[in-house]
């Protein structure tokens, strides 16, 4: 256990990688009583230039929203000033559970938004960015062209709305609605819609 580790060597949690004087502890490591240990399953990466030791993970990586991550989820409720999102996907990874995110009207778009009801409706699938994880909630933002509703449903008949110029149009009952859509509205969802619904039922 005390022999020096080489780059690429397989380690399990709790293996000693060196002393704090030798290396700066990086990802997948921790320090206890001036020794550096691994805390995940992976391969050791010794950065001799920067004097840093890290562990490249081989098992699953823990999937938790962080500030800056792009999340996808279903709108669970909307009020005039905010909406809540059931986050089911972080980046491209689908979660086993759910996280709840809050989208406030001030973070919807750079422009003035009158009411949340013209941004999204309950049941819509939305893509957003996490801007804060303070105060027990994930604060979300959609103020970017690639963020916003990526699939919306007609509030009268439930049919999938199609984007027509700056409005949303229901091909079934010809109702016209408003949403803050992502630039690729209706395109990403074709492949992944089933996954979202699958995730929601479990």
């Amino acid at each position: 256990m005390s022999e020096a580790k080489r780059s690429g060597q397989f380690v399990t949690p709790g293996e000693r990688l060196g002393v704090i004087e030798e290396f700066i502890p990086g990802y997948g490591t921790y320090v206890e009583q001036s020794f550096v240990y691994s805390n995940i399953i992976g391969r050791v990466l010794l950065d001799v230039l920067n004097k840093e030791v890290s562990v490249h993970p081989l098992a699953h990586r823990v999937n938790v929203p962080q500030v800056g991550s792009i999340v996808t989820g279903q709108v669970s409720s909307v009020s005039s000033k905010s909406a809540t999102l059931r986050i089911s996907k972080i980046g491209k990874k689908i979660l086993t559970g759910f996280f709840t995110g809050l989208l406030h009207i001030s973070a919807v778009s750079p422009r003035y938004v009158e009411t949340m009801f013209e941004v999204c409706k309950a049941g819509d699938i939305m893509r957003a960015k996490v801007i804060s994880d303070k105060n027990r909630t994930y604060q979300l933002s959609t103020s970017d062209t690639n963020l916003g509703v990526i699939s919306a449903f007609c509030s009268r008949c439930g049919y999938v709305l199609s984007s027509r110029r700056r409005q949303m149009f229901c091909p079934e009952c010809e109702k016209i609605e408003r949403r803050k859509t992502a630039s690729d509205y209706g395109r990403e969802i074709e492949g992944s819609a089933d996954q979202h619904f699958e995730g929601n039922t479990t």
Binding site: T12, P13, G14, G28, Y30, E32, Y37, N39, I40, I41, P57, A59, H60, R61, V62
Partner: peptide
């Protein structure tokens, strides 16, 4: 726990 990728001090 280790398999889930949760950081552990030791097994």
């Amino acid at each position: 726990l280790a398999d889930a990728g949760i950081p552990l001090r030791d097994l």
